[in-house]
């Protein structure tokens, strides 16, 4: 029983000092990113000031995808090497990724209103993100559906691995379906031709979102470790 926690304890010792580092990094990067977003980044010649939405929309979408990949890697490690810490990382990543995906949808539709004239179009990228949100919600629902947390970890790990094989297929089919039904979308942001004055704020904001992710991830993993210790202690007290 204690062997199982030897590893998490070392992780706790190593990662505790990282929490304030990540917190400060997030605060500073976010402040710099917001300053650049509103004061140094130029308005787009076509989209005017509304282009500033890009600086939260694009990082959210990137993080939404990044978290899913991270969750899949953690789930695979947890499943193959029975690494309990990886299970906790996968579980802790899910709500953060879902939040970012949700944000990318909301900001995308708020950006779409002035650009497309409507809050929602079945644009290929928006639709893919919507499906991704459902995948996150399904993962979290399965994770929490078992009385035995160990079952939740394993079942949801298999689900996220099935999902990660499916994500490219879903993306491909949604793109295909979309080109069939309507012309390409109006917004072409994030292409390689983006001007440096817009690229820098985007990169700083993305970095801020990443440090935020690490910060909240550490907090959640620490909480999960505490929860599993509580469970172990309760079990022992019940059996004593």
């Amino acid at each position: 029983m204690f062997n199982r926690f030897a590893n998490p304890n070392r992780f706790l010792r190593l990662s505790r000092p990282l929490v304030p580092v990540m917190a400060w990094a997030t605060v500073l990067l976010m402040a710099a990113g917001l300053y650049m977003t509103f004061f140094t980044a130029p308005a787009d010649y076509q989209q005017g000031q509304s282009v500033r939405i890009m600086y939260v929309h694009v990082p959210s979408a990137w993080m939404g995808l990044f978290c899913y990949v991270g969750m899949a890697v953690a789930a695979a490690v947890g499943l193959i090497w029975r690494h309990s810490l990886a299970d906790l990382v996968a579980k802790a990543t899910a709500p953060i990724g879902a939040a970012f995906t949700f944000l990318s949808l909301v900001t995308g539709s708020l950006w779409g209103k002035p650009m497309w004239g409507t809050y929602w179009v079945w644009d290929a990228r928006l639709t893919s993100m919507l499906v991704l949100l459902f995948l996150y919600l399904g993962y979290m629902a399965l994770q929490n559906a078992f009385d035995d947390p160990e079952r939740g970890f394993k079942a949801s790990a298999i689900l996220v691995l099935v999902g990660v094989i499916n994500v490219p297929i879903i993306k491909f089919s949604v793109d295909w379906w979309n080109t069939l039904h309507q012309p390409a979308s109006v917004i072409k942001a994030g292409g390689p031709s983006i001007h440096p004055s817009m690229l820098w704020p985007l990169l700083v904001m993305s970095l801020a979102f990443t440090t935020y992710y690490v910060w909240v991830l550490l907090l959640r993993v620490h909480a999960e470790i505490a929860a599993s210790k509580i469970r172990a202690l309760r079990m022992r007290q019940a059996s004593a």
């Binding site: 499906v131 459902f134 995948l135 919600l137 399904g138 629902a141 399965l142 559906a145 078992f146 009385d147 079952r151 079942a155 298999i158 689900l159 099935v162 999902g163 499916n166 297929i169 879903i170 491909f172 089919s173 949604v174 295909w176 379906w177 069939l180």
Partner: peptide
């Protein structure tokens, strides 16, 4: 995956329906 879980049926649709989307898209088209 849902064996032994609470709320099996509803959960199952939440898990499986998003994965059905490619089949739906290509079947209809």
């Amino acid at each position: 995956l849902i064996l032994g879980s609470r709320r099996g049926g509803v959960l199952l649709s939440l898990l499986v329906l998003p994965l059905y989307i490619p089949v739906l898209i290509f079947g209809v088209s």
